[in-house]
Design a protein around this nucleic acid. Sequence first.
DNA 1: AAGAAAATTAGTACCTGGTCTTAATATAAG
DNA 2: CTTATATTAAGACCAGGTACTAATTTTCTT
Lengths: 192, 192
Amino acid sequence: MGRLRKAERQNKLRDKLKENPFLVDKELAEMFEVSIQTIRLDRMELGIPEVRKRTKMVAKQAYSKVKSVQSGEIIGELVDIELDQNGLSILEVTEELCLEKTKIMRGHHIFAQANSLAVAIIDTDVALTGSADVRYNRPVYIGERLKAKARVDKAKENKFYVNVETKASEDIVFRGEFIIFSVDDDPDRKEV
Amino acid sequence: MGRLRKAERQNKLRDKLKENPFLVDKELAEMFEVSIQTIRLDRMELGIPEVRKRTKMVAKQAYSKVKSVQSGEIIGELVDIELDQNGLSILEVTEELCLEKTKIMRGHHIFAQANSLAVAIIDTDVALTGSADVRYNRPVYIGERLKAKARVDKAKENKFYVNVETKASEDIVFRGEFIIFSVDDDPDRKEV
DNA sequence: AAGAAAATTAGTACCTGGTCTTAATATAAG
DNA sequence: CTTATATTAAGACCAGGTACTAATTTTCTT
């Protein structure tokens, strides 16, 4: 890597750790061809904690993020629900939901919040999306707070027509009509 | 918690750590009212690593997951593209894209692949989804491989009509009509 | 109840990846 | 050359363990 002077090394150090927070001081020292103590001084000056704390931060953050953002059953936070009738979900627009360049939220995340809410309000073991018809009215930016309101308009056998309206402040930014199918494989539950 | 016998304690230990992998042996010892050595023996028998390794596993897993599933610019792998004309994207259906229970892929991920492909083929700095009309034809299961094909049907000024068809093996599982707007850093763009 | 087996607890040496502190050396700037 | 800045070194200490040995307690069996 060739030896760098302090300021430049510290910048690269910050970048390296952002890219890979699991590097230990020894590895960093070898990368930058300086002593381990220099790396520690650099971390101190930059306010970067040790590898175990960094790892823990990533883990904790990701743990809750993974839960709430993607692999949890709901995208966003379910704040109110009346099964088979309506529901409300709130989602903070964070950086990772946006296009890097413009800080505009990516459309499929807005869709995901609405879709998972539409699925969640159906009182059944398994609900699948059959179709969706959606409109995006204006871009949503990082830092905004999306309130998605879902309402079941019509239910016919295992077919639910769910309307979702998503607002940022007072603007309607998104509207969707979902058709959700309930697939109930629990024989003890009353057939709908 | 009241003292339990071995087998039961080990089960609860496993559950506790699944729920919260950040607990250290000392905390566990207090919870179960046994000595720290007992906890360590239990972990050994259950093949559960120490807290730092657990933390690291959570961090690494979540780190790559967050990267690949949500924050990358494209959902799926772009294998072919002709700007403003058509494109092909491939996505492996992995566990984290599915409902835990049924191993059926969640609808918004199918949407995300199609939507991000539709956006990607538009040759502009920023492309935003204006609307979408989509149909899901059959459930997609873990292990399948989704091929999404997008085609620009019509383009009018900054408005692109993009058709996406997603197949698993030879079945069409999803179809969508997207209207995408290109936004070429126009300072006159109406304020929001 | 006695004896064996299983489970639990105790204690010690050692490990990684640090922190915190003091001090010596190297390099650059005035 | 001298001072200031940067770098390296060295040592004591810490958390949260592993690995191992050994003692003690509880439980089961005969």
